[in-house]
């Protein structure tokens, strides 16, 4: 069941993005920003947590989940050190994803080269 929910919820979150691409003038870059900020808001409202419980990676892998991670990280940090946690929680929680992206960016840029789409 875990896998089914992951597939369906993850797929649906992507379909919403596709509808935004096809039916509105919103650009992909804005969709990415919108999803992360949206994830923070949904998580803060307490609505995203239950979805992650239900769908696992189906909710955490899309960028909404990245926003959720930021929001949860901030809560944990604020619990620990008070308002200063608002400055550290987001980076701490998202650290693995951002660091891995940058690291692989450097790694693959050394390894690969620009490829033609033709």
């Amino acid at each position: 069941m875990n896998y089914l929910w992951a597939f369906v919820i993850g797929g649906l979150i992507c379909v919403v993005g596709q509808l935004l691409i096809d039916l509105t003038p919103v650009t992909p870059a804005r969709i990415l920003v919108g999803y992360v900020v949206g994830g923070v808001v949904l998580s803060a409202l307490g609505w995203y947590g239950p979805l992650v419980e239900l769908a696992g990676a189906g909710a955490s892998v899309p960028l909404l989940g990245f926003g959720h991670l930021l929001a949860q990280g901030v809560i944990d940090a604020v619990e620990e050190m008070g308002w200063l946690g608002a400055f550290t929680g987001g980076f701490t929680a998202s650290g693995a994803g951002i660091c891995a992206s940058l690291l692989f960016g450097v790694f693959f840029s050394l390894l690969g080269k620009s490829r033609d789409q033709n």
Partner: peptide
């Protein structure tokens, strides 16, 4: 489309593809 854009893999692609592209 959004199937590869919205997951974390799309975020990674958006970091890694310019890294490779602008190596020059």
């Amino acid at each position: 489309g959004a199937g590869t854009l919205v997951p974390i893999t799309g975020f990674a692609n958006s970091v890694i593809s310019p890294a490779i592209e602008f190596k020059a």
